[in-house]
Design a protein around this nucleic acid. Structure first.
Length: 547
RNA sequence: GCGCCCGUAGCUCAACUGGAUAGAGCAACUCCCUUCUAAGGAGUAGGUUACAGGUUCGAGUCCUGUCGGGCGUACCA
């Protein structure tokens, strides 16, 4: 179905044919919603953008465009020229009624589109190595990635959620040694936690499990493998349980080891050498990143023979593209901001289209505890886990908190505030509106039984009109949130919608009116509940029918 | 030093990617529950969008510089 935006673009475009200019001189026709309601429901700045091309007064251009504009009176009721040359459009009432009916017909699929139909997209997120529980620091990553994946699914894409990890590095060895030390302590050996060891309580739990399963049998060996493997297994179980609590289920866990085992590491280096993009110096193998605009080359393989993270990262991205994804989205924190260009350069050098990899960088979360910034460290056991947070405020508030802000801005997370957030948290505003509607609908159902379709023409109150206008924006909001990978836009929209509903709720009583009006207003309320539920669903937040 | 990101009401943040009079939530103050959930609503107050220039019909948004904060700047990930 043609959206209003597309329709307006079409009719403007037709009118522009009167001007003697070539196709590529015409700027993009932008349609937006004006801030001031007096300026109508949609506006275009096309006349101003054409002013320099046509060398004419923008208001004059606007007049000529409007004069030649042919439009459907069932969709638009008025067109005005205002300000420096804006063309303002006003929706016809019938258009709103038709759209409202569409929402009711489409129900839980309203808002879905097929703009990315046929696209296979891989979203890689969380990707924390299994050295400890997920912290609130990982929370922003997890929630952002999952919500972006949801948004893309709503625009028609076939999305896989992937978690990339490495269980072979130095971190993991230290983890294994730490578990071994705790294990021996459990058996009353006089050993100390290694320097730089992991100090968290969860290490003791893992050690205890090993004691239960193996008794003293592991005490004699210096080999840390069984300790490392048990730790990895248990920590991953916990990570997955934590994610599950937040409604996040991964499709695949990809172990970095795979790109070693299948030979693609060696293959990658060889291909780069063939193109003279890799060379040896000082016993190490270097990647010629200077030919991609960097001011230094970077090391791919250390003189110790061990690759740096960059090399498997490149091979891993090539692996994803080989699996047939049209697009790979990486979600990661600002600390990677300087390193991902090397990965993009790497895959470009291997002959892939670097535009197929899209990186979403989010700024760090600053934890504030007892009024002071709190530096987290997994190793030092200075952290607030996501589970702790969810124990305090629940999964809905946790998700909402990470979704409500622009990813590209620093986020301050005050633990105390989040805990007491309880009833003043903005997520409740949305859920409350939803629950309130269902409460009304239950009463309507008890008292009435309608035999015919609702007469939506009765919805003429200003608050009703505004609510309908808000409702019909839902599909384009999803589109824009998905394209920009910015879930917070959806939150802003839902807040606005809930606020329009509340105004309607106060202005327009439902129960106790003429039966026709009860039915029409119930229909409007039902559509509102539906959009709220669909939106909350995308955010991974529950939409309770009672609170 | 260099690179990237950020700086908007007392606090936490929006502002549809360059549009018309910069908006919400907390906090403060004044009101509104015999009526569908007051986890709500109506209102008041609060701003030179860090600062200084520039680009143009038009700048919180783009460019330059300054100041302040975060993150990088490794043969760590």
């Amino acid at each position: 179905m043609l959206s209003m935006k597309d329709y307006l673009r079409d009719i403007i475009s037709n009118s522009l044919q009167q001007f003697d200019i070539s196709e590529d001189e015409i700027p993009e026709i932008q349609i937006e919603k004006p801030n001031q309601p007096e300026h109508g429901d949609a506006a275009s700045n096309i006349a101003m953008n054409l002013a320099s091309v046509l060398k004419m007064n923008p208001r004059k251009i606007a007049e000529q465009i409007v004069e030649e504009l042919e439009y459907d009176g069932r969709k638009l009721s008025g067109i005005e020229i205002a300000g420096p040359g804006f063309i303002n459009f006003r929706y016809a009432e019938n258009y709103l009624f038709n759209e409202l009916q569409t929402i009711l017909n489409q129900g839980e699929t309203f808002g879905q589109s097929d703009s990315l139909e046929g696209q296979k997209i891989n979203v890689e997120f969380v990707s924390a190595n299994p050295t400890g529980p997920l912290t609130v620091g990982h929370g922003r990553n997890a929630v952002l990635g999952d919500t972006i994946a949801n948004l893309l699914e709503w625009t028609g894409a076939d999305v896989d959620r992937e978690y990339y990890f490495n269980n072979a590095g130095r971190q993991m060895r230290v983890l294994g040694k730490s578990v071994r030390a705790r294990y021996l302590q459990e058996l009353s050996h006089d050993v100390e936690l290694p320097e730089d060891g992991y100090e968290g309580e969860y290490i003791k739990d893992i050690a205890q499990t090993l004691v239960n399963e193996h008794g003293k049998k592991l005490a004699d060996t210096e080999d840390i493998t069984p300790f490392k493997e048990k730790a990895e297994q248990l920590i991953f179980e916990e990570i997955q349980a934590t994610l599950k609590r937040m409604n996040i289920v991964m499709d695949r866990f990809f172990n970095e080891q795979e790109v070693y085992d299948d030979g693609s590491i060696d293959e990658t280096v060889q291909k780069l050498r063939d193109k003279d993009l890799a060379y040896d110096k000082d016993g190490a193998t270097w990647f010629r990143t200077t030919s991609f605009g960097k001011d230094q080359d970077t090391v791919l393989i250390k003189s110790s023979g061990e690759p740096t993270y960059r090399l498997p990262d490149i091979a891993y991205h090539a692996n994803k593209l080989d699996r047939g994804y049209d697009q790979c989205i990486d979600v990661f924190g600002a600390d990677h901001i300087d390193t991902y260009p090397d990965v993009l350069s790497g895959i470009e050098a291997l002959g892939y289209d670097r535009n197929k990899v899209d990186v979403v960088v989010y700024q760090f979360v600053t934890i504030v505890k007892e009024g002071k910034p709190f530096k987290m460290s997994t190793r030092k056991a200075n952290f607030v886990t996501l589970d702790d947070l969810m124990d305090e405020v629940g999964s809905d508030v946790t998700r909402f908190f990470f979704e409500m802000r622009d990813p590209n801005t620093h986020l301050e997370f005050d633990i105390a505030e989040a805990k007491e957030a309880g009833d003043k948290n903005p997520v409740f505003y949305l859920q409350y509106a939803h629950a309130r509607i269902h409460s009304i609908l239950r009463k309507v159902e008890q008292e009435y039984s309608f035999s015919s379709v609702p007469n939506l023409q009765l919805l003429t109150h200003e608050s009703e009109t505004k609510l309908m206008k808000s409702l019909i924006r839902f599909p384009e909001m999803i589109q824009s949130a998905a394209e920009s990978r910015e879930p917070h836009r959806l939150i802003n929209y839902l807040n606005d919608l809930a606020s329009h509903f509340t105004t309607f709720y106060h202005d327009c009583r439902i129960l106790g009116q003429e039966e026709d009006l009860v039915q029409a207003r119930s229909a409007l309320s039902k559509a509102t509940a539906q959009v709220l539920a669909n939106g909350l669903g995308i955010l991974g937040i529950t939409a309770p029918e009672e609170m």
